[in-house]
């Protein structure tokens, strides 16, 4: 164990790490929700395509997928900015938030599994 005995250089709270992980999870859930909604609503699918075409080169060629990516990026980076400010100086319950993160990632995986989309219709 001697190999891991390295002194701390600063005393940081775990809120920064929790914010990074939870925002990644929110980005994934954003992607999953936009995939489900686009599957069931042509209007949302068209709106997502227009959203992607606002900034992504070649977005016209990949359809609403560009908008789903945009939603995911906004949900991920936007929530990271907010959560970093909110949780950055806090010591969080790691077990609880890691559990929330795992459940959220599994939920996002379920949302992007196409056979599940029909359960929402």
């Amino acid at each position: 164990m001697a190999e891991t005995k390295i002194k701390s250089t600063e005393n940081s709270c775990n809120g920064i790490a929790i914010a990074a992980a939870i925002s990644a999870m929110l980005g994934m859930i954003g992607l999953g929700l936009s995939a489900v909604l686009a599957e069931h609503s042509p209007a949302i699918s068209a709106a997502l395509q227009r959203l992607g075409q606002l900034w992504m080169p070649g977005a016209g060629g990949i359809g609403p997928y560009s908008g789903k990516e945009t939603v995911a990026v906004i949900a991920w980076l936007g929530s990271w900015l907010v959560l970093h400010r909110l949780l950055g100086k806090r010591e969080m319950n790691s077990a609880l938030w890691t559990g929330i993160f795992v459940v959220g990632v599994l939920a996002a995986m379920m949302l992007i599994w196409p056979p599940m989309w029909h359960f929402f219709s």
Binding site: T9, S12, A20, A21, A24, M28, L31, G32, K68, I112
Partner: peptide, 23 residues
């Protein structure tokens, strides 16, 4: 879709590793 998951997961890991360092 699942290919897109790789980016936030790896960025979050890298950020935490650099932010906290050996702490």
């Amino acid at each position: 879709y699942i290919a897109l998951f790789t980016l936030p997961l790896s960025v979050a890991a890298a950020f935490i590793l650099w932010r906290y360092g050996k702490e």
